[in-house]
C-alpha cells in the first residue's frame, strides 16, 4: 500500500524539478521560440551547482546553477540570431554539448568520470518537524532547495505575467511587427526570455542535484523533455503548464513509490511515466483537434 502522504511528498519534490523548467520553456514559447534545450540546461544547472557548491559552498552553488545555464541559453540564442542559425538546431547542439562537456569537466572537478558525491551538498529538510501532519505535511517536508526552486519558478512566472517584458515577449511571439512599431528590438526581448529560461532550468537542475547531493551523469534522465511536453499540454499558458507539470510529477512519484511494493523491475516502472505522458499528449491533441 502506498502511503498518500509519502506519495505527495515525492510528487511535490518532482514538481520542484519539473515546474521551473516547464515555466522556463514557456518563457521562450511566449516569444514564439521553442527552447528544445531544456534538458541540457537542467543538466548544466545540476553540474554547476555541484561544481561551484563543492568549491565555494551551497550558496555559491545555487547562484552558479542559475547564472551558468542562463548564460548558456543567452549565448546560444545570441548565436542563433546573429549567425542566422536555426534555434532548433542550436538547441540540439546544446543538448549534446552540455553532457559531454560536463563529463569532461567532471574529471577535473571531482576527479571521476562517473557519479561524484560531495558531502554537505544535499539540502536538508528545514520544516521536517511539521511533515508528520497528515496530507498538508507534504508541503512542509521538502528540502530547502525545493522551496528555492518553487520561489524562482514563481518569480519567473511573475515576470511573464505581470511585467512589460512578459507583454513584449507575448507580442514578439504573436506579431514581431508590433514590436517594430513600438521601436523595440525583438531580438533583445528574445535574448531576455532565453536568459530567463536558462535561469529557471538551472534552478530545477540544482534542485535535482541537491536532492541527492551528488553529480550523476545524465541525471536529468529526460525530465527536461517532460517539462517541454508540459508546456504544450498546458496550452502554452501558465496555469495549464503548472497543472500539466503537477500531473507528470504525480506519475513520476507513483512510478518511484511502486518500486517499493511490487516485484516489477525498477526500469519497467520508470518507463511507465514516459509512455503514459506520450499517451496523454496524444489524447490531449485529439481533444484540441476536435475543438
Amino acid at each position: 500500500m502506498i502511503h498518500l502522504s509519502a506519495l505527495l511528498l515525492d510528487a511535490i519534490a518532482f514538481l520542484a524539478v519539473l515546474a521551473p523548467a516547464a515555466i522556463g520553456g514557456l518563457a521562450t514559447e511566449y516569444a514564439g521560440s521553442l527552447n528544445i534545450a531544456l534538458e541540457g540546461l537542467m543538466l548544466a544547472g545540476a553540474f554547476s551547482y555541484m561544481a561551484f557548491g563543492a568549491a565555494f559552498g551551497t550558496v555559491a552553488g545555487f547562484i552558479a546553477a542559475m547564472l551558468v545555464p542562463s548564460a548558456i541559453a543567452y549565448v546560444s540564442d545570441l548565436f542563433s540570431r546573429k549567425a542566422n542559425a536555426d534555434s532548433f538546431v542550436v538547441g540540439l547542439g546544446v543538448n549534446m554539448l552540455v553532457p559531454a562537456a560536463a563529463s569532461m569537466l567532471s574529471k577535473y572537478v571531482f576527479g571521476s568520470k562517473g557519479v561524484a558525491a560531495v558531502a554537505g551538498l544535499q539540502s536538508g529538510r528545514p520544516f521536517a518537524g511539521a511533515a508528520s501532519i497528515p496530507v498538508v505535511g507534504a508541503l512542509f517536508g521538502q528540502r530547502s532547495s525545493d522551496y528555492l526552486a518553487f520561489g524562482v519558478a514563481i518569480m519567473v512566472a511573475l515576470v511573464l505575467a505581470r511585467t512589460p517584458l512578459g507583454t513584449r515577449a507575448k507580442a514578439a511571439g504573436m506579431n514581431r511587427d508590433a514590436l517594430t512599431m513600438a521601436g523595440i528590438d525583438s531580438g533583445g526581448v528574445r535574448g531576455a526570455v532565453y536568459a530567463l529560461s536558462g535561469l529557471a532550468c538551472g534552478i530545477s537542475g540544482a534542485a535535482l542535484a541537491s536532492s541527492v547531493g551528488a553529480w550523476v551523469p545524465n541525471m536529468s534522465a529526460g525530465r527536461g523533455w517532460i517539462a517541454l511536453v508540459a508546456v504544450y499540454l498546458g496550452g502554452k499558458r501558465l496555469g495549464g503548464t503548472f497543472a500539466a507539470s503537477a500531473l507528470f510529477a504525480l506519475l513520476l512519484s507513483l512510478a518511484t513509490r511502486a518500486q517499493a511494493i511490487t516485484e516489477a523491475p525498477a526500469e519497467l516502472l520508470l518507463s511507465l511515466p514516459y509512455f503514459l505522458t506520450a499517451v496523454v499528449v496524444v489524447l490531449g491533441s485529439s481533444r484540441s483537434k476536435r475543438k
Binding site: 512589460p164 507583454t167 513584449r168 507575448k170 507580442a171 504573436m174 506579431n175 511587427d177 508590433a178 514590436l179 517594430t180 512599431m181 513600438a182 521601436g183 523595440i184
Partner: peptide, 18 residues
Amino acid sequence: SMLAPGLSAADNVALGHE
C-alpha cells in the same frame, strides 16, 4: 496589421511605453 493579435487593444497601444 502590425498589432499583436492576442493582446488587448490597450496593451498594443502601450507596448514599448508601458
